[in-house]
């Protein structure tokens, strides 16, 4: 087998997903956005609000990554290479950042 044929066999060079599937994902993303805008007017306590909004945004991000960015149609290996490392780094940022910064606010004279 030639080197070129080998590569072509391993990488899928064809369209994945249908127009209907992508349109459905798009509608879901719009619906979640409408829910977010609606929530913004509910006068919730700000910590609760940011938690809900970031939670909904994470769902939207997952939809975009899995369907628009084709992650669902890739090998599991690629997902394992990229996403856990990213989530780990973001969690480390939160862990490193917040205790110190919250301590700072308690040092602030009131």
């Amino acid at each position: 087998m030639s080197a070129h044929g080998h590569t072509a066999e391993l990488t899928h060079e064809h369209a994945v997903g249908t127009t209907k599937l992508f349109a459905t994902v798009w509608v879901w993303l719009l619906l979640l956005t409408i829910v977010e805008v609606f929530l913004a007017y509910l006068r919730l306590e700000v910590h609760l609000m940011i938690t809900i909004l970031v939670g909904l945004s994470l769902i939207k991000a997952a939809l975009i990554i899995s369907y628009f960015m084709h992650m669902r149609f890739e090998r599991l290996g690629l997902f394992l290479l990229l996403i856990p490392a990213m989530v780990f780094c973001i969690c480390m940022m939160l862990i490193m950042f917040f205790p110190d910064s919250i301590r700072l606010t308690h040092l602030r004279p009131h």
Partner: peptide, 27 residues
């Protein structure tokens, strides 16, 4: 085209966080 699409979807994805956190939290 697919690789440029990945970049474009990422830009979209980032806005999905900036819009609620910057705008909706300061309504």
């Amino acid at each position: 085209v697919e690789v440029s699409g990945l970049y474009w979807h990422f830009v979209d994805l980032v806005w999905m966080f900036i819009f609620p956190m910057v705008y909706l939290l300061s309504v």
